[in-house]
Each structure stands twice: as C-alpha cells, then as structure tokens.
C-alpha cells in the first residue's frame, strides 16, 4: 500500500477506535454514577429516581456489544487452544483465518438483524424513562459495523489492536504502545 493511503486510513481508523472506546468508557463510568445516584437519592433525599435503574440497564447492552467489537480488535475473546495447537501446521494456518471470517459473518448478522430488531421495537417504550425500547437493540447494528470493520481488516492481515483501549490521552504514540495491557 502507498504510504499516503496508509496514513489516511490509519487516521480514520484511529478516530473510529477512539470514538468506540470513549463511548464504552463513558458508558461504564456513567453506569457507576447512575447507580450511586440511585442509592444517594433513596437513602439521603428519600426520593428514589425511577429512571435510574432503567438507565443503568440500558447502558449494559451498549457496553456488552461495544465490548464484542473491542474484543475482536484486541483479540480478547477467549477460545479453546488445546486442540487447535496440536493440529498440523497447514491446518493451523487455515484455522487462523476462520475466526475473523466467522466474526465477519456475525458482524453482518448484527447489522442486518439488529437493524430489524431496532425498527421493530421503535414503537414500544420503556416504563420509567419512556425511551423507545429500540435503545436496547440499537447497539447491535452499531457494534455490528465495527465488528465487520475489525474482522475484515484482520482478514486483510491488518492488525489495529493496541493491547489496550484507545483513549484521548494516549496521543499519537498510542499506536505503538502494545504492552499497556499488563502494566500494573
């Protein structure tokens, strides 16, 4: 690939990674805030906000599905290596492509059927917040697109994993930091 093309796609990918990870981390932090507020409201203010448990719950599928995509990028999804490691070398190479190929299929499923599900639940509501039930299913198509992108890249032998999540603070050098995962 031409260096310039690589630089542009690299920039786009980094932006995608950052958006994904910022969304996930914000969601995780927001869940803690919401549930803590629920406790504070009930115990201190004696006013239990009915939207709180529902909001925390709506965030969980978002976290879970974005996690599916992040896990594809970072190879965080656990598999059983016991048998595959004992296969002959050629079979091992073939097996290496199987997982990204199947993730691509699953990503397409998430996009297509997740979109159907989102449309289907557009007209019903959640009891406390009144939000459309579709907010629970919208993470399927969103994460589906990301799963497709990451698995397709892996099929093209392009690794974008960084062994950690892309965060606003890790700056341009973030790409090179691949050992950040176990830095405790």
């Amino acid at each position: 690939m031409m260096p310039k093309f690589q630089a542009v796609t690299g920039g786009v990918l980094r932006a995608v990674d950052r958006t994904t990870d910022t969304l996930a981390l914000t969601g995780l932090a927001a869940m803690v805030v919401v549930v803590s507020w629920q406790v504070f409201g009930r115990f201190v203010l004696s006013d239990s906000p009915p939207w709180a448990p529902e909001t925390a719950l709506v965030l969980l599928p978002w976290l879970g599905l974005l996690g599916v995509a992040i896990g594809v990028r970072e190879h965080a999804h656990i598999g059983v290596t016991f048998v595959a490691d004992r296969l002959p070398r050629r079979a091992r190479t073939a097996v290496r492509w199987l997982t990204p190929a199947l993730f691509l299929v699953f990503g397409i499923y998430l996009v297509v059927q997740g979109w159907q599900l989102t449309l289907l639940t557009m007209n019903s509501t959640l009891p406390a917040t009144g939000l459309p039930t579709a907010v629970q299913y919208a993470p399927m198509p969103v994460a589906g697109v990301l799963v497709c992108v990451y698995s397709a890249l892996q099929l093209l032998n392009v690794e974008t994993g960084r062994g950690a999540l892309a965060t606003p603070e890790d700056g341009e050098e973030g790409e090179e930091e691949s050992e950040a995962r176990d830095d405790r």
Partner: peptide, 20 residues
C-alpha cells in the same frame, strides 16, 4: 483513571459477550 476504566473494559469485553 482512564487507564483504570480501559483495563476494566478490556476484561469486560470478553465476559459480557460470553454471558450474552
């Protein structure tokens, strides 16, 4: 703190998919 959230999220990404 961002590093903390990020490490937790990496662990979670596999756990939540498995449970789902």
């Amino acid at each position: 703190l961002i590093g903390v959230l990020s490490r937790a999220m990496l662990t979670l990404s596999s756990v939540l998919f498995l449970i789902a």
